[in-house]
């Protein structure tokens, strides 16, 4: 910390020093947050590369141990989350699809229904919502679980047995979370569109279900399928890796777990929105 003497000298020696200090006071926290964010992104990136490397090099190793762990993660992050995803899909359909369809009918722009619903539901809301539901429902618990393993030394115990903790703890979550988010996104899209159609039909939409879904299909481009797959894969990989990074990568004490969980949620939200932003220019070009 600068002593009062140096501060005074610095203040009088430089013209406009007060303004400079004020500016510094405003910019310093921003710079600190930015540098901290970049550093965290770099660490999570390195962790992800290590995990993907282990996945590639140990792909066929010990399938009788790893496969049940993957199934367990799919059960936790996929099957058990399915009811809430279906519910949210229906809610999304009622609120977004139903209203949008009715609004477009009122202004006589039914032809925009396909592109609009594809953009809002298929490309944007469904993948993001599925990823965030998995984060909220399973991710926070997973950080606590992994962090506890690290804090009580079970990770070192695995290493002592010659078992790679990345292979045993991270790879099943990487596969399980990614598969789950991809599948849950598909369910969410289906439920949102069906519920949306039902609401719109009940409010006077003069279109059969086949015609409605043909309009949606017309709004889809073939590029949407690989892009949706890539986006949900990105969400799955990032979500699982941020969770595992905060649970495992740094030595934790039990009292640090709460903070690690909060950071996981914040980082996953930011990372998901960044992934979304990466896809934006591609969608604009379609």
């Amino acid at each position: 910390m600068a002593s009062p003497v140096t501060a005074t000298v610095g203040g009088t020696a430089r013209p406009g020093g007060g303004l400079f200090r004020l500016l510094k006071l405003w910019t310093d926290p921003v710079i600190r947050v930015f540098v901290g964010g970049v550093d965290t992104a770099r660490r999570i990136g390195a962790f992800t590369l290590i995990s993907l490397g282990v996945l590639a090099t140990k792909f066929g190793k010990s399938p009788r141990v790893i496969r049940p762990l993957v199934q367990q993660q799919i059960l936790r992050a996929g099957v058990n989350v399915l009811p809430i995803v279906c519910f949210l899909g229906v809610a999304l359909g009622v609120v977004i699809v139903g209203q949008t369809v009715l609004l477009l009918m009122q202004v006589g722009q039914e032809k925009l229904m396909g592109p609009l619903l594809v953009t809002v539901v298929v490309r944007e809301l469904a993948p993001l919502t599925a990823a965030l539901v998995v984060l909220a429902r399973v991710g926070t618990a997973a950080v606590t679980e992994l962090g506890t393993l690290r804090a009580v030394g079970e990770v070192e115990a695995l290493e002592a047995l010659g078992i790679d903790p990345i292979h045993y703890l991270v790879v099943p979550r990487l596969i399980g979370f990614t598969v789950s988010i991809v599948c849950l996104t598909v369910y969410m899209i289906l439920f949102a569109l069906v519920a949306g159609y039902v609401v719109a039909f009940l409010q006077g939409l003069s279109m059969g279900p086949a015609a409605f879904f043909r309009v949606i299909a017309d709004g889809l481009s073939w590029v949407d399928f690989p892009l949706l797959a890539l986006k949900t894969l990105g969400f799955g990989i990032l979500t699982s890796q941020i969770i595992c990074y905060h649970g495992l990568a740094e030595p934790l004490r039990l009292e640090d777990l709460g903070r690690a969980t909060t950071r996981t949620v914040a980082h996953t939200l930011v990372a998901s929105l960044l992934v979304d932003a990466v896809f934006l220019p591609v969608y604009l070009l379609i």
């Binding site: 010990s62 009788r64 141990v65 115990a157 045993y168």
Partner: peptide, 30 residues
């Protein structure tokens, strides 16, 4: 390695699973 205290066992697994884990993993057995 036998660690101090509770030996850093995997608390959510049974005794049999704890002891069998290294064999299952390295030999790819159920």
């Amino acid at each position: 390695v036998v660690f101090d205290g509770h030996g850093r066992l995997f608390g959510s697994q049974t005794v049999l699973e704890n002891v069998a884990l290294p064999l299952c993993y390295h030999r790819n057995r159920s």
